[in-house]
Amino acid sequence: MIKQNVIEATQLTKKFGNFTAVNAITFKVAKGEIFGFLGANGAGKTTAMKMLIGISNPTSGQANVAGFDVYKNAEDIKKNIGYMSQKFALYDDLTVKENITFFGGIYGLKRAVIKEKATVLIDELGLHDVANDLVGSLPLGWKQKLAFSVALLHNPKIIFLDEPTGGVDPITRRQFWELIYKTADNGTTVFVTTHYMDEAEYCDRVSIMVDGKIEALDTPKKLKEQFKVNSMNDVFLKLARG
C-alpha cells in the first residue's frame, strides 16, 4: 500500500533578518499519521508551523500541505486544516453553542450543517448542561476537548495541535489523547507539539528540532535505539543538550 503524503516540506527555511529561525527542514507526513513535532523553546517549531498552516511566507524552500502549495494556495490550506493551541482555541466570552456556531461559520459551513454538528458534538462530549454557559467558565480540560472538536468541524485533512495538553490534569490529558487516536484512526492526520515526553511516545513518528534544524526523525522506538536510551525524554535531553 502506498501511503499518501499530506505534508511535504523540502528545504523549508525562514529567516528574520540575520537570524535563521527554520533552517532547511525536509520531511513528509502521511495520511492518518500522528506526527510529533518536538523541540526546545526557541528551536523554531512555531515558526515552522506558521509556514505550514499558511500564515507565514517561507524565505525559501518548498512545502505542500493538504495538496496545496504554501506560497500560492495559502487560503486553500486554511480551509483544509484545523488548528488549535493552548493559547488560542475558543472565545471565553461566547457560550459553548456560540463558539461552535462561530467557528462553523468561519469554516464556511452551512447553518443547517452547523446545527446538526453542534448537536452531535455536544452529545459526544457530554456538554448538555453547559451548552449555554460561557466557555470561560469551563474547566481547562473540557475547554481543550471542545476546542479540539471545534477544530475538526469542517472535516479537515490535517489537524495542527500546538501544545494542546499543557497544564491539563493527567486523566483529561489521556482522554485527550484517546480523541487524537480516534481522529487519526478516521484518517485525519494529526500534527502535534508537546513538552510531555510520554506523549511523544504516543506518536507514530517524531521529529526533534534543534536550533532551526530537524536533528532526528523516526518512530519513538527507533529513536530510542538510535540514541541507546530507554525513553523519549532521554532522547530529547541527549539531542537538545548537545
Binding site: 526546545a40 523553546n41 528551536a43 499543557g166 497544564g167 513538552h195 530529547f236 535531553l237
Partner: peptide
Amino acid sequence: DEPTTGVDPVSRK
C-alpha cells in the same frame, strides 16, 4: 507558581 509550565524538558531540568 508554575515556573516550568510550557517550558521544554531541557530547560525544565
